[in-house]
């Protein structure tokens, strides 16, 4: 059977082809869901944002210019949805400003007390990072976005992408040291 490229599917979606929408959804929903869930940290909110993201795809498929990968475009839309949710939370007093959120070092000693293995400790310390730092780590390490793709998704210059990832990794290393795990870097 022919496997339709993402770009082919978007052309079909732009023409109102619902099965093509379903294929694109099934192909990318997990990636989009995980990206959103790591940002909003609420299962129901993340699922709503997933459907909102793909609804935008349904509405705007004809606007896709093909200058980036479809997955990059999807993550850009998803990020906007997440920020909208988080802004509403902040405005309603339920959450602080996402961009201003800072890393949480308060619970770091629990890494030591729980005697976690190194991998688990790294994962726990990643959770303690600020949202901005978690995001860039996920985009690069998990979603395998290139420098220019991260720049497009996050809306920052490419140089800032490199700087942000460096600082995210440096903060991660500091949290690990505070938890008793020194990897000798930076």
């Amino acid at each position: 059977m022919t496997t339709h490229s993402d770009e082919d599917l978007l052309k079909r979606i732009a023409a109102g082809d619902r099965p093509a929408m379903q294929v694109l959804f099934s192909r990318h929903r997990l990636m989009v869901h995980r990206f959103l869930l790591r940002l909003v940290r609420d299962e129901t909110v993340a699922e709503d944002a997933v459907s909102d993201t793909f609804l935008d795809v349904w509405r705007q498929a004809g606007d896709f210019q093909g200058r980036s990968r479809v997955s990059t475009w999807l993550l850009s839309i998803a990020r906007f949805k997440a920020l909208t949710v988080l802004r509403k939370r902040r405005d309603s007093g339920l959450d602080e400003d996402w961009a201003a959120e800072i890393e949480d070092e308060a619970d770091t000693p629990e890494v030591t007390s729980q005697k976690l293995d190194k991998g688990a400790a790294i994962r726990l310390c990643m959770e303690r990072l600020s949202a901005e730092h978690r995001e860039v780590i996920d985009l690069v390490y998990y979603h395998e976005a290139s420098v220019d793709e991260v720049a497009e998704i996050v809306g920052i210059p490419e140089g800032t992408v490199k700087t942000r990832l460096f600082h995210a990794r440096k903060k991660l290393a500091e949290l690990l040291v505070a938890a008793g795990i020194d990897r000798g870097w930076p």
Binding site: K118, G119, I122, R123, M126, I137, D138, Y141, Y142, R183
Partner: peptide, 10 residues
């Protein structure tokens, strides 16, 4: 090592 744990977390 960091990448492996980011993947595992996701």
């Amino acid at each position: 090592e960091e990448r492996a744990e980011a993947i595992a977390a996701n």
